Simulated assay, not measured.
Amino acid sequence: MPKDVPITFVCTTKFLRDTLCKNLEQLENTDWLGMSNKYALTSLVNTLRQRCAPTAFRMANSPNDTKLINLGRRGAQQLARERGAQLVIPNLDPTLELTGARLSTLTQRVAYRLIRNRRNTPERRSTVKTVQSVLLSIKEDVNEYATTQDVWLSLRTKDIRLPIRDFLWKSLHNAFRCGSFWENIPNYEDRAMCQYCGTTESMSHILVECNAPGQDEIWQMAGKLWSRKQALWEKPNLDEILGSNLRRWLSVKKKRRLFVERLWRILISEAAYMIWCLRCERSIEHADDDNWTHSTAAIKARWECTINRRLHLDIAMTHRRFGRLALDRNLVIGTWHGTINDEIALPDDWTVIKRVLVGIDPQIFDLEARG
């Protein structure tokens, strides 16, 4: 296009508009920190600054715009099939190219992150192995393409409490000192063994295999709660636990069940974290007593308290005093629908009544009753 001809970009998202018009100065001041397609965007900015005619960006807002976009995509796909991938080298003006961060607006936090990005930090072999195993499990379960970046970003979901995010992050890095970590440390080799089972301890063994009281009971109660939302229940393995935030549940019409997915994230993460806490109490706090274990009543009470506390946290977060951070009432009601005690007697919007009157059905925590 000639540089003196006006252009209007019709976009399907607000990304280009916000990046090039709203957030451009901030991004250039921080050297495009956090933008994975930095070099493509800087080349685009350089090219647009060479123009002397108006350039506009707007969202597609009519059927004709959608047809135009689809026509352009089909044309690009046809050219790609006929000519293959071609390298595009834009004609950039070096006088319009900005590099680095602006010193007058630089903060210590931004400087530290920029320095970290310049360092070539090698990946840990155990981390790569764990993440690849999680990705393989995700692709087998939900039949969709997921990337390594998706696994790490999934840990930032607001549905998971901060201590549990930290637990999942360390588990992906295999950073906990258990099992094989102690095998090569003189005089501490015995710590590699599970005190209860007598086998080599690992995160998979702790969360889904150990015979010590706690693991089986918690998953049993989690399964009973999950059965209120979804008929099928199978105890998850380690890969499914670490990738629980990426799990997708579909309806008969192949539509995502967002409420079910949210409950799955909460349930699996809370269960895994509690099993880990019980193991630490048994193996560290009571290391001197090999016969000490948690009682069934204590395990049941702690799990019941944890789930009800999480329910009440969701209810509290629907209050309007939290402004834009407040949870949508329909989201909370949809997440816990079917699990509330005497839900039929409650009003349609039970988030507005006193919390003491709303709780999880006690039958879900009954270990003696199956199903």
Rank of each mutant, 00 (worst) to 15 (best):
I266M: 04
T293N: 13
R309N: 06
A345S: 15
G338M: 05
N341T: 07
A345H: 14
T293Q: 13
W336P: 04
K253I: 03
I299N: 05
R321D: 11
H312F: 02
R256L: 10
T339V: 10
G323W: 09
I315P: 04
H337F: 12
E343W: 11
T293W: 08
D289P: 02
D342G: 04
A326G: 11
F322V: 06
H337T: 13
A298P: 00
N330R: 07
L250W: 11
L267C: 06
D342L: 10
L325S: 11
L311Q: 02
H337S: 14
I275L: 06
I315Y: 02
K255R: 15
L327I: 09
N291E: 14
R310E: 09
D328P: 01
E281C: 08
D314T: 06
C277H: 07
R302Y: 00
R320Y: 09
E304V: 01
I333P: 06
L250T: 10
D289K: 12
E270T: 12
S244I: 04
R310S: 05
L250M: 15
H294M: 12
N291T: 13
V260F: 00
E281S: 08
G243Q: 01
M274Q: 14
S283A: 15
T318Q: 05
V252W: 07
R262Q: 08
W249H: 10
I340P: 06
N245C: 12
L327D: 09
R329S: 06
N245M: 12
W249L: 08
K254I: 01
L258Q: 05
E270R: 02
R247Y: 13
W276L: 00
L325H: 10
N308V: 01
R309S: 14
D290Q: 12
L246Q: 04
L246G: 00
R320W: 12
N245Y: 03
I299D: 00
S295G: 15
F322I: 07
W264I: 02
D342F: 11
E343H: 12
H319T: 10
R279K: 12
L313H: 03
R309L: 00
A297N: 11
E281N: 10
I307C: 01
E304Q: 15
A326M: 06
R310D: 03
T335E: 08
T306Y: 03
H312L: 01
L267F: 04
D342R: 13
I284V: 14
R247W: 09
A297P: 04
A272S: 13
G338S: 06
D290H: 07
R247D: 06
M274V: 04
A316I: 01
W276H: 03
D288T: 08
R257I: 12
L246E: 01
I344Q: 15
E270F: 00
I340S: 01
I268W: 04
H312C: 00
W303C: 02
T296Y: 03
R265K: 15
V332C: 07
I333K: 15
I299F: 06
S251E: 09
S295R: 09
M274R: 08
A298W: 07
R262A: 08
I340Q: 07
W292P: 09
L258R: 09
N330H: 05
